[in-house]
Design a protein around this nucleic acid. Sequence first.
RNA 1: GGGCUCGUGGUUCAGUGGUAGAACGCUUCGUUGACAUCGAAGAGGUCGAAGGUUCAAUUCCUUCCGGGCCCACCA
Length: 782
Amino acid sequence: MQKKYIPQEFEKEIYQLWEKSDFFNPDKLPGTRKNKYCVTIPPPNVTGSLHMGHALNNTIQDILIRYHRMQGDKTLWLPGTDHAGIATQNVVEKKLAQEGLSRHQLGREKFTEKVWEWKKEYGDIILKQLKKLGYSCDWSRLRFTLDQQYAQAVLKAFIHYHQKGYIYRGPRIVNWCPRCETAISDIEIKYQERKGRLWYIKYPLKNNPKKFITIATTRPETMLGDTAIAVNPRDKKYKELINQKAIVPLVEREIPIIKHHLVKSDFGTGALKITPAHDQTDWQIGKDHQLPVINVIGPQGKMTKEAGIYADLSALEAREKIIEELTKKELLVKTEEYQHQISLCDRCSSPIEPQISTQWFVKMKELAQPAIKSVQENKIKIIPSRYKKIYLNWMENIEDWCISRQLWWGHQLPVWFCQNQKEKYIVAAEAPQACPYCQKCKMQQSADVLDTWFSSALWPFATLGWPQKTKDLQEYYPTSLLSTARDILYLWVARMIFSGFEFLEDIPFKKVYIHGTILTIDGKRMSKSLKTGIDPLNFVEKYGADATRLGIILQANRDQQEIRFDERTILAARNFINKLWNISRFVEMMDPSNSENKKIKKPTIADQWILSRLNNLIKEVGPQIENNNLSSAAKDIYEFVWHDFADWYLEISKFQKENSSLEAQTYAILRLVLKECLKMLHPFIPFVTETINLQLNEIKKKDYARLLIIAPWPEVEFSQINKTTEKKFTELKELVSEIRKWRKEKEINPKEIVSLPSQFQKSFASFSGEEKKIIQNLAKLQ
RNA sequence: GGGCUCGUGGUUCAGUGGUAGAACGCUUCGUUGACAUCGAAGAGGUCGAAGGUUCAAUUCCUUCCGGGCCCACCA
């Protein structure tokens, strides 16, 4: 072995070796493997680069995958990427904007071509990056959510929902992003606290134009679309005004004053102006009272014709003009500073403009039922358990899912419209031959695409071949685990669960693990726009992939919600690996004959101790990994390797082997302990352990059967665990430390051999002859 | 408004109903052939605050203070 640990020199080569061995592919794994273990990767978006979240999440998965492969399971980690509709469309639009182009200038066909070009360029980059981190995905099964086969699954799903009557279409008030020019679902919105204003505006009463009803609003521009004023039924202030009429200033429209329980009498003036076209609550109230709907703000955020003289102004411009006009007419009572939350598009951060628009929805109430039950009954186990409640709360109050998007990048709806009767349509996978309504038109497919999560909801089974009844589907569904970040619990996890039940009548995975969110060391969110993001590949270059993996895992405690990422932990991991490297060199140097199976005849006290510690460790680590306690497992192995094996046993072995009758045995134990440690460490730091394994055992590169990646996981030998020995050895170590401390205080040269001072005599006498020798050697005593 | 979560040595974090732990940093000593990406020894914390339960609380309960997050139709 080389003197220095330089990961960059072998990591690439080792990855190629694994790929050549084909062991990432479960069909090529040796031996009979009865148990299946399968994870379908959360498909990264084709938008761009790898971030710390990917590194954490995929390291977790790779550790579990490698562990199960070593356990003898038929193990599949299925990789893929997501077309990520709105996200990808936006990045490509941004890129075009730099060239001074818009998607509208290109047209739909040209634009989607550009997106495909982007996908080809960037889609594979992220996969290459994943390989750098050593992830052992079966690349022969790579999927993309816009693959032909995958598209079939998406169509099938839509048609299925339609046939069951779960899909409906209609005008509704939806969250509209005026920048992306599409509807988005409730959970694609984020909120931001912003300073705003609350304007108090007088609406004259029809009967008595000198009297007024005053309302408070944050959005005066929407008043042009007002069709009522509502007050709380119990509000005594307005009792006499109910059922009277008021006049909307500027547009001079006559509107009723109505009562509705959703109006809070303690907010503003207790009177609420109702604009059904531009507000969720107002829409609801409008529906209850069958109010007319007047659309005054268009899809691009500009005022419509209905806004009269304000038409074509942006909403903000209109607001200023309206305020100006109201002031002139002395209808503006007052203005208050007001801190409130506004909703923004999750993808482009534009303020959401609620809009009436015709969209497609999936009815959720029934679909949610088995998804609720399965989690309640722990058929799907959620870790950490606190997310179970969060999930259930959402599922139990679920709203219908708006699945149509006015985007160009995605799965087009399998819906065909009659050209003559515009509202008539049929649902079909392929273009219909003839129109069943007018018999003569060529039916036209809906321009809308599906919410990107509609397709990713099918991920755990569409990747395995559904709707075909493939062997993979049979073997690997339900999958074993879904590991992810908490921000897509509703967006993705929940939807996979009800989809799984709907299409396969079974859970999609047995376990959901939700890992912590990685923050900067001072607790800030990592994000590109804030320039607080860190590229994990920087660490790969600096410290190697293994150190990066281990360093991340060491700080990702199981139930932790946030991880303040500390680069020093990666450094610590690198140092640990360096230690492991040198332990291996020591073992190699001590035992150049490289012969295995040397019999351990009569283990010394030190042998017994290290074997007891080792087996104790094996006993702990397996369950920790299975319970997703990866950081604890890593810490325990780290502790053992460094502070039991290297610090004590290795040092003892140096003089134990001088006894010729013990020499072979000492070598054998060194090798054995190292070998078991390499195996247990392999899931965490696969490159270096595989390299050491190759070099230490002089394995030929084509001898795939001897690779560590398929080595059997260590088994506990309970007979070797001996707590009495361990306790005695702990006392021994303590005495050695005390003597060393004494030596230091007395400033005795470390090399000098001295006689045991009297204060330690009594303690020393309690040890056996064999133990005394160890103490004498380690403490440099006569 | 409701809910979740965190607050432990300089920093990042473990941990437990009964004398507080790790890593990094710091101090002192050390270049004996595994390793200075190291070894040995050490300093450093009234475990956010106040109450309560208990023989005993950092650990359980309540309240408060201070971070972070999620949900909700206060315009």
